[in-house]
C-alpha cells in the first residue's frame, strides 16, 4: 500500500483521499450502475476524491490484494 499520487497535488498520504465507489461495468442498467460492485481481486477501477487537498475527483486503478496503486487520472476539466 503506497501513497496515492494526485495528478495535481503530487504524492500524498492515503488518509487525505476518500473512496467513493468501484466503477460499474460500462453500459449496465441504472440499477446495476448504482447497486452492483465489480470486485476484481487485483485490478480495481475506482472513483476517489482528494478531500484534504485540491478536492479534485480521481480515477484510480488499484490492486486491492496487494494494496498497490497502479494509476491515477484527474477527472475534472475535460482532461480524459
Amino acid at each position: 500500500m503506497t501513497r496515492l499520487t494526485c495528478p495535481f497535488c503530487g504524492p500524498r498520504e492515503l488518509r487525505e483521499f476518500e473512496f467513493h465507489k468501484t466503477l460499474p461495468e460500462p453500459g449496465s442498467t441504472p440499477y446495476a450502475r448504482v447497486y452492483e460492485r465489480v470486485n476484481r481481486l487485483d485490478d480495481s477501477l475506482e472513483h476517489w476524491q482528494h478531500v484534504q487537498g485540491c478536492r479534485g475527483w480521481l480515477l484510480v486503478r488499484r490492486n486491492p490484494s496487494s494494496g498497490a496503486v497502479l494509476e491515477t487520472v484527474i477527472l475534472g476539466g475535460g482532461a480524459q
Binding site: 500500500m1 488518509r15 473512496f19 470486485n39 476517489w48 488499484r62 486491492p64 490484494s65
Partner: peptide, 13 residues
Amino acid sequence: DGFPSYTREGQWS
C-alpha cells in the same frame, strides 16, 4: 478503512 482491500493490513491513521 474505507476502500476495497483483501490485504488484512489496516491503515495506521
